[in-house]
């Protein structure tokens, strides 16, 4: 709720916020004046808490002495308004999205270096989309599949992170085990069959290259003879079970940890939490 309110803050609140950003240095900035002359200052102030104290003081003063010009606690001539001069209008709307500028911007630098960097930047933008690090969101299926879409897909090379450098929990356990056995298998098969039937294996490898990890090992399994296949599958099922068991255990373990953590609250967490809430509120 708080976030919502802040987002759709009324323009008047906007100007209050302007003031707040100025609170460090001065309090005689123009927005403060606007505020001073705003007819419904009290209402405005009530809608926004955490106002700097000086504003509240000003409001109190205004309340005491009644509204109008006489309310200023200082000599307005000191800031450049003559007696009887019209004061600037109250601004009740946010500044325009595309404000007029008094001065046109200077043209951009041009030159060989600039051109090259521009080309590099645009090329880089295309390249990163083809890198394996670019994770696309699984898109929802369209009703009609566009023919061209099939050809627009880019095949990215696979990326296997160096697990030694990453925390253990990063490792997808199942995948890792399979990946280990797979690489061995690939070696074996390629060595065995390379003499007899090169072309076939090559095709296979090419196919495999295009597919995901999981499918690969399935393919490998199909290649094996019946008995072996059964053995393998059995093995893998066991493996999977074991992994699942492990994950489950871990989860339980962590849950326990979580509980203990929250039970022995050292007060730090509370601070962090309230921070979070504050953060959210400002959006």
């Amino acid at each position: 709720m708080a976030a919502l309110r802040a987002e759709r803050a009324s323009p008047a609140v906007e100007s209050v916020r302007d003031c707040r950003s100025l609170e460090s240095g001065s309090f005689l900035s123009l927005p403060t004046f606007r505020l001073l002359f705003c007819p419904s200052l009290e209402a405005l102030v009530l809608s926004e808490q955490n106002l700097p104290t000086f504003l509240v003081q000003l409001v109190a003063m205004a309340g005491n002495k009644g509204r109008g010009r006489a309310a200023y606690t200082f000599n307005i001539e000191a800031v450049g308004f003559n007696r009887g001069e019209k004061l600037p209008d109250v601004v009740l709307k946010p500044p325009p999205l595309f404000p007029d500028t008094d001065y046109k911007p200077v043209p951009l630098k041009t030159g060989e270096g600039e051109d090259y960097m521009l080309a590099l930047k645009q090329e880089l933008r295309e390249t990163v989309k083809r890198m394996p690090y670019f994770i696309e969101t699984p898109e929802e299926k369209e009703d009609i599949e566009r023919y061209s879409k099939r050809y627009m897909k880019v095949y990215k090379e696979e990326w296997i992170p160096d697990w030694r450098r990453l925390p253990r929990e990063m490792m997808p356990k199942k995948k890792y085990k399979k990946a280990g056995s797979k690489s061995k298998k690939v070696d074996n098969t390629s060595k065995d069959t390379s003499l007899t039937n090169t072309a076939d294996v090559l095709k296979k490898i090419e196919e495999l290259e295009k597919r995901g990890d999981g499918e690969k090992s399935d393919e490998e399994n199909e290649e094996k003879e019946g008995s072996k296949e059964k053995n393998k599958e059995g093995d893998e099922d066991e493996e999977d079970d074991a992994v699942e068991q492990e994950e489950y255990d871990e989860e339980e373990h962590e849950e326990e940890n979580d509980y203990i953590n929250s039970y022995f609250d050292n007060g730090e967490d509370f601070g962090a939490d309230s921070d979070d809430n504050m953060d959210e509120a400002t959006y």
Partner: peptide
Amino acid sequence: LDQVKKALCVLIQHNLVIYQVHRRGMV
């Protein structure tokens, strides 16, 4: 979880995220 892991891997690979082991073995 899977996607978070992948994303973190990418971010760590690019030195955009660092990790630290906390007491109780939390990362």
